[in-house]
């Protein structure tokens, strides 16, 4: 049985945005804190802190998870993608382009989570219906209520491919 004793760290290896990363974490370290405070990746946001709003969404082996309620030790041996890993400043991800084209961003606080959730959806279903998009995004809240343009951007991106 593997045991990580209280107040001690264990070493984890993660593929983070395509690059191997090795770091020591304690069992109680939350992935969101490790990303934001130790790795300076500020794309995932702490908002509701209870898996309701989706602002802290990251991809774990391609599937969306809430980094706010996920132990960093669980990422050992897995692949994590944050919004910083989606595209580069020179070459944005097609979803990011679509969000810009459709003005699907208002304050921007939810955008990273929206993009990553949409990324997972399109990997699963490259040509989703509107109903499927709405269902998949149900757990990502836009406090500006700009849902219509977000859904349209995702559908346009899917259909452009």
């Amino acid at each position: 049985m593997n045991i990580i004793p209280i107040r001690s760290s264990c070493s984890i290896r993660v593929t983070l945005n395509g690059r191997p990363v090795e770091l020591a974490v304690r069992p109680e370290a939350l992935l969101l804190d490790v990303l934001r405070d130790r790795l300076q990746l500020k794309g995932a946001k702490r908002s509701c802190d209870m898996q309701v709003c989706g602002a802290c969404t990251v991809l774990l082996d391609g599937a969306p998870v809430s980094a706010c309620t996920f132990l960093a030790v669980e990422a050992d041996g897995r692949e994590i993608v944050t919004v910083e890993g989606l595209g580069t400043e020179e070459r944005l991800d097609p979803l990011q382009e679509a969000f810009i084209d459709h003005a699907a961003v208002q304050c921007g606080f939810c955008t990273a989570g929206m993009l990553l959730t949409a990324k997972a959806l399109l990997a699963e279903d490259p040509a989703p219906t509107r109903e499927r998009v709405v269902h998949y995004l149900r757990g990502n809240l836009c406090r500006c209520t700009g849902y219509r343009k977000i859904v349209e951007a995702i559908l346009a991106c899917a259909h452009a491919r």
Partner: peptide, 20 residues
């Protein structure tokens, strides 16, 4: 933030039951 805890990772139900 979470308070510190130990993490047990049993590989059988029997091991988990021992810890509990």
């Amino acid at each position: 933030m979470l308070r510190p805890f130990a993490l047990y990772r049993p590989s059988t139900v029997g091991e988990a039951a021992e810890v509990l």
